[in-house]
């Protein structure tokens, strides 16, 4: 856990408050109106929101620019996601310094999906660093005021670095060892990939044992059958429960838009109520709600935890 606290997210985690975070996705567009609107709806409901960096290797608005705009226009604290897939260590360092200049206080350091999986498959995959070395670099920058080559950084940035964990990984032992390695190099908080099954999370926490780093468990209330289906088919390490998928699929038949929305919300609240109830009894420090484009679901879900 850090000595100094720079962000609201870290403050609440250090205080042991149960923390909620949300997720905002900039798109392939010349503006960030949509994530800004979503952020406005979430102000007061979540402590901070992740701003995704080319998710699934689809090239979108730069996440630093988006995070800055969102913070400035809505007051929502952002977790700036930064992936190694598209930038070498120099670009990553520049971006981290830039984040400091723009007042960003949280970074989520990720390796990122392979570029061939997204909408620009011919791009050269970079991966000069990986998630662990990026975390190491950021801590070195913040704590020692040095870059990876040992050069001094004048007036180093003050921000926190988080990392990801995948409880549903095919090889749990290797995944947990990797997470421990991230902890060893100084990751300050962890956000997990989406989890649907309590058994999976139980196994993960058991394998990990007691750690001194707060873990926010990811859930994905889907705004449509398509979104859940995409996750099930294309996101590694995540199996969406067939029953939940089926109930969402049935909503495709509902013609009335308002009724359809209500039914989707009902399904999500029903499914996630029991999961969130369960989550209370785990070592999770909070919940990362990846309800991209679906901010209205956060309030009813949060009620469950009150």
């Amino acid at each position: 856990m850090p000595g100094e606290v720079y962000s609201q997210l870290m403050k609440e985690l250090v205080e042991g408050k149960y923390v909620f975070t949300g997720e905002l996705e900039p798109e392939k567009a010349g503006d960030v109106k949509e994530p800004i609107e979503a952020a406005r709806e979430l102000v007061g409901l979540v402590t901070a929101c992740n701003v995704t960096d080319n998710p699934q290797s689809f090239a979108y608005v730069n996440s630093l620019a988006a995070a800055y705009k969102i913070e400035k226009e809505t007051g929502m604290e952002c977790v700036y996601q930064l992936r190694c897939a598209d930038r070498n260590r120099m670009a990553l360092l520049s971006d981290v310094l830039g984040a400091g200049v723009l007042g960003i206080k949280n970074i989520l350091a990720l390796a990122g999906d392979h570029v061939s999986l997204g909408d620009t498959p011919d791009a050269k995959p970079v991966f000069d660093l990986d998630s662990t070395t990026l975390i190491y670099m950021i801590r070195k920058m913040v704590d020692e005021g040095k870059d990876l080559a040992g050069n001094d950084i004048h007036n180093p940035p003050k921000l926190h670095v988080g990392g990801a964990a995948a409880p549903g990984a095919a090889h749990l032992k290797a995944e947990v060892a990797k997470v421990k390695r991230k902890i060893k190099v100084g990751v300050e908080y962890l956000q997990t990939q989406v989890v649907y099954y309590p058994e999976i999370l139980d196994k993960f926490f058991k394998e990990l044992g007691k750690v001194d780093v707060p873990i926010l468990v990811g859930i994905f209330p889907a705004k449509s059958f398509g979104a859940a289906d995409f996750f099930d088919k294309y996101v590694a390490g995540v199996d969406v429960p067939p029953d939940y998928l089926k109930s969402l699929e049935a909503t495709k038949e509902i013609k009335d838009k308002e009724k359809k929305k209500q039914e989707i919300d009902r399904i999500n609240v029903e499914y996630f109520t029991s999961f969130l109830e369960y989550l209370k009894g785990t070592p999770a420090a909070g919940c990362h709600m990846m309800a991209v484009g679906y901010p209205r679901i956060i309030a009813p879900l949060k009620k469950v935890m009150e």
């Binding site: 392979h114 061939s116 011919d122 050269k124 995959p125």
Partner: peptide, 9 residues
């Protein structure tokens, strides 16, 4: 054109 790096997965 930029090189097709997708040929080198």
């Amino acid at each position: 054109a930029p090189h097709e790096w997708s040929k080198c997965k």
